[in-house]
Write a protein that binds this DNA or RNA. Structure first.
Lengths: 235, 235
DNA sequence: GCGTCGTATCGAACGTTGTTCTATCGTAGC
DNA sequence: GCTACGATAGAACAACGTTCGATACGACGC
C-alpha cells in the first residue's frame, strides 16, 4: 500500500497505516518492554511514518492505551467464550477469572489499564457481562450480583497490579533473576526482630520463591467460597 | 530558618527545607490535585526554593513517591494500632482493612503507590505485619496465612485502584457531579440490547449511584467468610 | 581574622515526552 | 485538469524528570 513519491528528492516513502496496524504495533511495543516503551515516537518509527500521523487514528495517548487494551481483551473474551461451561456457575466463574488472569500474566501491562474506561473498551464490557451472566444462575439479589462481579474483578485486578509493576531494571536486563530478587527481600525480612515481626517471620519461607498464580488462585478461592455460601448452593 | 543573603544584588532569599517539610508539601500537592500535580517544579515553588534542592533529600521521583506514601501510611498504621481489638481475629481483620480503605478513600492517589516497594516503605511493612498477626490467631498453615493476608490486601488494592483513577476532568472542575457521570454511563448501558446484555440490565440500577465503600465492604466480606470457613472457626 | 571543608541551595541546561500547527501528498469524483 | 478530502509528516511547543556547576552558609582548625 505504500507508494513512492518525490523520486527527485531522494525517494522518501509515505507510510500508509490502519487502525489495525497501529494497535497491533502498539501492543507489540507494550509486550516487548512494558508500558514505558509505548511512546508516540517509538510507535511512529515502527510504523515507518511520522509522529503526528498516529493522531489521525487516536486523539490522545489515553485513547491509544484504551484501544490497545480493548484490542487484546478481545482475544481474552474469545477465550472465555470458548470455555466449555459446566453445571456449576461458580466453577465457570473461576474458569473465566483464571483465563483473564492468565492473560494478564502474559501481558503484565494489562493490569494497569484493564477496566479503566468501559466507554472506549467495548470488549471489557462484554467480558464483564459474561462474568455477570454466571451470577444470574445463582440465587442472589441484583445488589449481590453486582457486588459479586465487582469482587471477582477486584481480586483479579488486585493481584494483577501486584505483578504489573515494572521490575526494578536489574531484573529486566537479566542481572538478577526473580528468585534472587525475592530472596534478597526474604533475607532482609529474616533479619528483622522476631519479637516485633512474628508474622513476617512466620511466612518468610512462603514468600521466598512464591508463585503469583498460586497467590491469585487462593485469593480467588476465598471470594468464591464466600460467594457460594451467600448463594446457598452446595459445592 | 531562612536567611538573607546578597543584599546588594536584590536580597534574594535562600530556602531552608527538611525531609519533613518536603514530604508534607508533597503530600499536600497529592491531596489537592492528585498524582499528576506532584511535579518537582510545583513542589519547589511551594517550598520557596529551587528545583534541584529537592534532589538533596531524594534521589528520584520514585523515591519521593515512596517516601510520601510511607509518610501517610504512618498515620494509617497509628489508626490501626489504636483500634480496640476483639476476641474475633476476623472482626479485627475487617476493622483494619476498613481503616486502610477509608484512608485511601480520603487520598485516592494512595491506591496506586501503596505496597509498591516495601524496601523504602517501612510503615507499609509494619501494617502488613499487623494484619498478619491476626491470622496467627487463626487455625491455619503458614501457607494459608500468607495467602490470606495477600488476599485481603488484594481486595483493598483492587477496590482502591478502581477509585484511584483520575476522574475525567469534567468531574474535577465540578462541571458534572459524580452522580451525573455515573448516570450517563448507566443510561448508555440501558440502551444496550437486553438480549445480548442481560446482566448489565439486571444491575444497571445498582450501578447507578452506587457507593464505592459498599462495594468494597461486600468484596471484603466475601473473602472474610471464605477465610472463616477455611479456619473452621464459628462466626 | 582567614582558609577549608561538608552541608545545603539554586539557576540553567539537557533529553524525552505528549501534543499542536501547518504544509503537503495521493486518490476519487466531477 | 481541477477540486475536495482522506491521510501523512516535519517542525515546533510546553512540561516533565534529571544533571551540572556554581555558590552560599556554618563550623572547625589555626
Amino acid at each position: 500500500m505504500t507508494r513512492l513519491q518525490n523520486r527527485a528528492t531522494g525517494g522518501r516513502r509515505r507510510a500508509s497505516h490502519s487502525m489495525e496496524s497501529v494497535l497491533t504495533e502498539a501492543v507489540a511495543l507494550l509486550d516487548e518492554a512494558g508500558a514505558p516503551a509505548l511512546t508516540f515516537r517509538a510507535l511512529a518509527q515502527r510504523l515507518g511514518g511520522g509522529v503526528a500521523s498516529i493522531y489521525w487514528y487516536v486523539d490522545s495517548k489515553e485513547e491509544l492505551l484504551d484501544r490497545a487494551t480493548d484490542h487484546v481483551i478481545g482475544a481474552v473474551l474469545a477465550d472465555v467464550e470458548r470455555l466449555p461451561g459446566s453445571d456449576d456457575p461458580i466453577d465457570d466463574l473461576r474458569a473465566m477469572a483464571v483465563t483473564l488472569f492468565d492473560a494478564i500474566v502474559d501481558r503484565p501491562w494489562l493490569g494497569a489499564y484493564f477496566m479503566r474506561n468501559t466507554e472506549a473498551q467495548s470488549n471489557s464490557l462484554r467480558l464483564y457481562e459474561r462474568l455477570g451472566q454466571q451470577t444470574l444462575r445463582l440465587d442472589l439479589t441484583a445488589h449481590q450480583r453486582f457486588h459479586a462481579v465487582s469482587a471477582i474483578v477486584g481480586v483479579v485486578v488486585g493481584s494483577a497490579v501486584d505483578m504489573g509493576q515494572e521490575p526494578p531494571a536489574e531484573i529486566l536486563d537479566g542481572a538478577v533473576s526473580r528468585e534472587e530478587f525475592l530472596g534478597r527481600f526474604a533475607q532482609a525480612w529474616r533479619e528483622l526482630d522476631p519479637e516485633e515481626y512474628p508474622f513476617v517471620h512466620e511466612i518468610v519461607d512462603e514468600f521466598d520463591g512464591h508463585d503469583d498464580v498460586d497467590q491469585f488462585r487462593s485469593a480467588l478461592e476465598l471470594t468464591l467460597t464466600g460467594l457460594r455460601l451467600q448463594a446457598g448452593t452446595r459445592p
